[in-house]
């Protein structure tokens, strides 16, 4: 299956991307060898060596065509944003599909080459590229390449893939304590509405909260329980409140974010002038960690 927007068979966004075809170091060796063979053949007027040189030369040229062909019919999908904590190795992946069978495909970035894969005719495969050694921050890898080699490894054809964004969160400091809760929980103002459930009436519960509907069906009283009640006061994580170097403080905050989520608490975060309102859930965690990843001391 291919994505078609124009007759060339390539997605419109990929048409004018830069492509290149280079010999690998092995290919350069072989070419030099061929030239030396040719000189030898000329010097000794030896046709067997001429034949040898020309076979190697032809195979060398043919390999270039093979490498080109491996990449020519391949379409690249989008590279999804990936994130990891510092010290972990984020893995980029991209799906490629091809009109024809292609071998020796890999994803590469600068000097990194992902594992080599192949794609059957009119099939698809997923290429991965682990990107080790990135520091905390947001990295836009815009010189990501899709490369293909020939079966002899003499040529490398490469084409710009779409760019990818890698978010590196701070390393997580394990076993950090949550700072004391203070301030308003996020949903206190909605507490009257957000029904969490019912529980048996205990003396001292306000009568407003008795669920009369249920009480009518049962013999005992129950009260409505709302969120934002006790124990869910929001935790505030503050960069300024921590001591140590910037990365260490950020790591601690990252640890606290994970700890707060694990404890089922709501948390807010202050990073210098930036402030994230208390909340919980995956999206909030992502937002906090992203803010930590992007944080720059001004």
């Amino acid at each position: 299956m291919r994505v078609v927007r124009d007759p060339s068979g390539l997605d419109a966004t990929q048409r004018h991307l830069w492509t290149g075809l280079y010999p690998t170091p092995g290919g350069v060796f072989l070419l030099l060898t061929t030239l030396l063979l040719l000189l030898t053949a000329i010097n000794y007027a030896n046709n067997l060596i001429f034949a040898m040189a020309f076979f190697v030369l032809a195979a060398w040229g043919q390999a270039a065509w093979e490498a080109w062909r491996n990449l020519a019919g391949v379409n690249v999908g989008e590279v999804r944003t990936v994130s990891a904590h510092a010290g972990e190795i984020p893995v980029l992946h991209v799906r490629v599909d091809s009109r024809r069978a292609a071998q020796g495909l890999s994803l590469s970035w600068r000097r990194l080459n992902g594992p080599v894969n192949e794609v059957p005719a009119r099939g698809q495969t997923r290429l991965v590229l682990p990107v080790p050694g990135l520091e905390r921050g947001e990295h836009v890898l815009d010189d990501l390449r899709l490369t293909a080699t020939d079966s002899l490894g003499l040529w490398r054809m490469s084409r710009s893939a779409r760019k990818a964004t890698v978010l590196i969160y701070p390393a997580v400091e394990r076993g950090v304590a949550l700072p004391g809760a203070w301030g308003e929980p996020a949903h206190r103002h909605m507490g009257g509405d957000a029904l969490e459930g019912i529980r048996p009436y205990r003396p001292g519960d306000p009568l407003v909260r008795v669920n009369w509907k249920v009480a009518a069906k049962r013999d005992d009283l129950v009260v409505n329980q709302f969120d934002g009640g006790q124990g869910s006061a929001a935790v505030w994580l503050d960069l300024a409140g921590e001591v140590g170097g910037l990365e260490a403080r950020l790591s601690r905050l990252a640890g606290q974010v994970l700890a707060a989520e694990e404890a089922g608490r709501e948390w807010g975060m202050r990073l210098g002038e930036q402030c994230l309102e208390p909340d919980s859930g995956e999206a909030h965690r992502h937002a906090c960690l992203t803010a930590l990843a992007r944080y720059r001391e001004s």
Partner: peptide
Amino acid sequence: NALKRLALAAPLAVVLFIFFPRIPGPL
């Protein structure tokens, strides 16, 4: 694969062999 590469290279190699100008050595 080696045999296949050689077979595919053969036509080009033969053409090169036949038409490459022979300068008799020594150089």
